[in-house]
Design a protein around this nucleic acid. Sequence first.
DNA 1: ATTGCTGCAAACGATTTGCATGAGG
DNA 2: CCTCATGCAAATCGTTTGCAGCAAT
Lengths: 165, 165
Amino acid sequence: MLQKRIDDQASISREQVREAQELFYKHLKRVGLKHTDQRDTILRTFLETRDHLSTDELHRLVKKKDPKIGFTTVYRTLKLLSDCGLASEVAFHDGVARFEHQYNRRSHHHMVCTECGGSVEFFSPEVGKLEQEIGRKHHYLTTRHTFQIYGLCEECRKKQARRIV
Amino acid sequence: MLQKRIDDQASISREQVREAQELFYKHLKRVGLKHTDQRDTILRTFLETRDHLSTDELHRLVKKKDPKIGFTTVYRTLKLLSDCGLASEVAFHDGVARFEHQYNRRSHHHMVCTECGGSVEFFSPEVGKLEQEIGRKHHYLTTRHTFQIYGLCEECRKKQARRIV
DNA sequence: ATTGCTGCAAACGATTTGCATGAGG
DNA sequence: CCTCATGCAAATCGTTTGCAGCAAT
């Protein structure tokens, strides 16, 4: 099931890219790793998206810029980006790990269409409050939560209605 | 990471087992499948648990009753049980599919300890309302949602504090 | 120079399928 | 009898790792 783009292409600004890069380089230096062209290309490609990409999908995009970059490097770079908070995993529960960049974005959740794989993002501060509340109640130190809604999007509902009639 | 039992063993009643079995048999008949001893054993074993079992864990339990039953049969039966609503998948996001039986239980969610794998269940009607609300707003016909909280349970917090001191 | 990086290929673990044999309706 | 079920083994899929040669500090 492929992730379909819903949002318009709304790239982050050149300035924001710079900031993200700097954050990444600092992180690399901090943990004693090196700054390479491949990592740079991968970060930039990743930041240009607003989708929820699998490693494979990001790899495909990256190869358009530099066909020599391999899957493994993308995979490992994505892990590095997660480590420094630039990427975070969203589990759509369809068997593949997906990532989105967190740069300059509010906390949000996803509603996924189980028919076409499309998704919409929504914002719901209540969910974060619930996390706090439940954690306190059961003496957990909460670190994060996942919340996804599954269903049929408007188009797929219509298609289904037509099939039944 | 193994699932740790939190709740006490609170088996469902003999009567409830009967009901579940009947529902299962009807489902089998409806889709033209057969009623076998293996499927029966697997359903009964599954109903006796209150945990969130992986296919492998259920298989282990099933083998205690009938060592000849193979993994594949458990796997396929779990799918059948999902089809008729007796089992539902809970994704704890740790790489294995987990199932719980929905028989006679209120809708609930899980908070998972990322250190020891333990979990607590909690009830939060707000989440269901949110699902409805968000669905309406974006014209989705919602069917289900997932909500999990991750963090450290009380014991693991203490252990960690000790390590740091 | 030293240490980490890359990309291939191969390992891995969970899941899924093909198939020959066996059992249910 | 015919169809479906079973359990083994093998295939599959996404992910992860080992390693030999390459590049950054």
